[in-house]
Design a protein around this nucleic acid. Structure first.
Length: 423
RNA sequence: GGAGAGGUGGCUGAGUGGCCGAAAGCGGCGGUCUUGAAAACCGUUGAGGGUUUAUCCCCUCCCAGGGUUCGAAUCCCUGCUUCUCCGCCA
């Protein structure tokens, strides 16, 4: 949610900013609605004031033992007028809310123009793309004899799920362990476990609802629950309706969860293997920071994700998403893309975003700035550190040998119980 | 799943129809005192919104949503939630 005051003070600026996203904002309709809002709100509050005054005078008259009958006659019509005004106001406000909550975040000025991922800008590259002296296999072929089974998962549930068994299952767990330990011990995050089912308010807070319900799995309940699409949702909502104490800032959480995505609209994309699944494991980093620290914190958090790839010695590149590829709630996003020999290209393995105050305004997440003594909206930042399923793929494909074996990277060996090669 | 008791400001806790955005205590902040600190004393201290250049002024909020009433923290209904006991359970 954007600041409504920004719309009132500088509509032209807002319109220009939304243009960068190709978001067609109807300024004329907005202005008409806003002017009605102002009129009706003022009128409603005046009536409320009148009601309060007369109620008070009746109370006083009664206490003195005066006849209150004439006063009661006087306020008779007030109730009805007020009710009409209140109804109209709440309709206008609801209309305004619907309009406002559909509007995406304003992009950071550094975000490049562009329509699709082809227009993203490469910021840096790290590591050496491995060269193989034999025809490489992808993770599906490599995993077939090692406990990665898609048909079994399809029997149990459906397509876009995987069963992982034996040393490969352990390898994924080792990857998660490495990530969690690194973020806790070296990057200063606090380990967190949260519910995997959330309510609509939480999804509204981080921006998935109301616009992107189709991407979610809904669970029948009264009221409905949703399977989390990312730990970002429950973890960021820790600070919903909270005023964080200055000495607790910044808050840094790391959280391992499964993630559930309907992938509606992704038919035919990445149908092979476990690149795009309905369920995958992810380690997520979330930071709650002040406005003045958010840019720096975003850079740091991205570095934290990069450090995992460095520890695993996986070649990757860092890209700055263009206007058209930056998510609804984000102001600025870096993607980390790891080299996958099986696809002979870089694929997203982490997405690190600065939401600024967009999510915070939706969920009234604030901190008390000691300089002013007043509550101010926090900035929220999050990023995958990393997607564990895709990291497993990357390790398998990058560490394969001619016999189709997988060598365990040095950094993961402490977690593998002595296994160095998966046959 | 069954039974009962609660949900009031940062915390504890009073308030059963008007003078209550809310006593008192604690905590926080400022001051007096002190070489400094503590103690003591004095003062101050919730959030959101509207209008406005600004001050002022006004509106809303005592878990949430409805209702009764001229008037609701207080009465009624529904929901959520916390605690205790019983049952079940990893």
């Amino acid at each position: 949610m954007l600041d409504p005051r920004l719309f009132r003070s500088d509509l032209e600026h807002v319109k220009q900013q939304l243009d960068r996203r190709s978001y067609a904002f109807d300024a004329i309709a907005y202005e008409a609605l806003e002017s009605r809002r102002k009129d009706v709100q003022i009128k409603t509050q005046e009536l409320q004031n009148e009601k309060n005054i007369s109620a008070k005078s009746i109370g006083l008259a009664k206490a003195k033992g005066d006849d209150i009958k004439p006063l009661l006659d006087q306020v008779q019509h007030l109730g009805e007028q007020l009710k009409t005004a209140e109804t109209e106001l709440s309709e206008i406000q609801q209309e305004m809310t619907v309009l406002m909550e559909a509007i995406p975040n304003i992009l950071d000025e550094i975000v490049p123009a562009g329509k699709s991922e082809d227009d993203n800008v490469e910021i840096s590259c790290w590591g050496k793309i491995p060269e193989f002296s034999f025809p490489v296999k992808d993770h599906v072929d490599l995993g077939e004899s090692k406990g990665l089974d898609f048909e079994l998962a399809a029997k149990i549930t459906s397509a876009r799920f995987a069963v992982l068994q034996g040393p490969l299952a352990r390898l994924q767990r080792a990857i998660i362990q490495l990530m969690l330990n690194t973020h806790i011990e070296e990057h200063g995050y606090s380990e967190t476990y949260v519910p995997f089912l959330v309510n609509a308010d939480s999804l509204y807070g981080t921006g998935q609802l109301p616009k992107f319900e189709a991407d979610l799995f809904k669970v029948n309940n009264d009221p409905d629950f949703y399977l989390i699409p990312t730990a970002e949702v429950p973890v960021t909502n820790i600070v919903r309706d909270v005023i964080v104490d200055a000495k607790e800032m910044p808050l840094k959480f790391v959280c391992h969860t499964p993630c559930f995505r309907s992938e509606a609209g992704a038919y035919g994309r990445d149908v092979r293997g476990m690149i795009r699944q309905h369920q995958f494991e992810k380690v997520e980093m979330v930071q709650i920071v002040s406005a003045k620290d958010s840019e720096k914190a975003h850079e740091e958090l991205t570095n934290h994700a990069e450090n995992i790839l460095k520890k695993l010695n996986l070649a990757y590149r860092k890209v700055l998403l263009c206007a058209g590829d930056t998510g609804f709630s984000s102001s600025k996003t870096y993607d980390l893309e790891v080299w996958l020999p099986g696809q002979n290209k870089y694929r997203e393995i982490s997405s690190c975003s600065n939401f600024k105050d967009f999510q915070a305004r939706r969920m009234q997440a604030r901190w008390r700035n000691p300089e002013s003594g007043k509550p101010e909206l926090v900035h929220t930042i999050n990023g995958s550190g990393l997607a564990a399923g895709r990291t497993l793929i990357a390790v398998m494909e990058n560490y394969q040998d001619e016999q189709g074996r997988i060598h365990i990277p040095e950094a993961l060996r402490p977690y593998m119980g002595g296994v160095e090669i998966i046959e």
